[in-house]
Amino acid sequence: MKWIVPPASWALPDWKEIWHYRSLMFQFATKDFKVRYMQTWLGALWAWINPLISAALLYFVFNKVASTHLPFNGFVFVMSGMVSWTFIASLVPESMQGMMGAQAMIKKIYFPRLILPLSKMAGAMVETMVTLLLFFAVCIWQQQWPQWQGMVLLPIYLLMMMVIGLGMAMWATVMVLISRDFLHVIPHMIRLGMFVCPIAYPASLVPQKWQWLYFANPVSGLIEGFRAMLFEGYDLHPLIWISVISSVILLITGLLMFRKYEYTIADIL
């Protein structure tokens, strides 16, 4: 007999149960893909077009208009930032809107609520793989060769990306659950993030005394780490450990908060 008692205030997810519901996660992710690309002409090509357009825009504004100095091929540089950024910028709003969109279901059927953001993450991960292919294509086109030794670290990069993405998605969802105002605030924060994160400029451009704060943003470390991993001569920033710590804190607090609010979703949505 399985006993169900009133929920504890703070607890981490029940990973065993989530594993049990893994097929649901893939169902959700497939459903999202189908719905998103079913009625478009270009279909999954949008996964390439979107980051290309954003990268071209940023490249133009920062490097052609503001003529920021970049350590290597400008377009490859911006694209290397866009790989991480596209993931975050699509996952966070998707998760929080996904939670709102699933209200009817949440009120009628039980499943671990974490499955919803996890399925969004699975979807965003597939898109990131596609974006990575695009990125390497851009590298070849611009003849800015990544170092092959760095590829070994790719799984660690992707893992960190998921840690940060999930952490942020958890926080965004919890904030929206607390107040619907955040449905409007968060898209602005994401737009702002495009300039705050070192996508179109290197982190070294930030004044020395603010560097620690700059790296407290986990995405900064993610993007900088990705570049240092792939491009020879682009050194790993000494403060990157701040990003690693803040990523882990972000994920753990996010999971705790989500778990705390998960139980009330059916009641307050």
């Binding site: 006993w3 169900i4 009133p6 009120k107 009628k108 059927i109 059916a266």
Partner: peptide, 28 residues
């Protein structure tokens, strides 16, 4: 069916529980 959790008290469930609470729930 665990859609919401109790405020107090407890319940025990043995076996697989399936509930049909409203039409077309989870249908896309």
């Amino acid at each position: 069916s665990r859609i919401t959790s109790p405020s107090s008290g407890k319940m025990g469930i043995r076996g697989k529980l399936s509930s049909l609470l409203e039409v077309g729930t989870g249908f896309h």
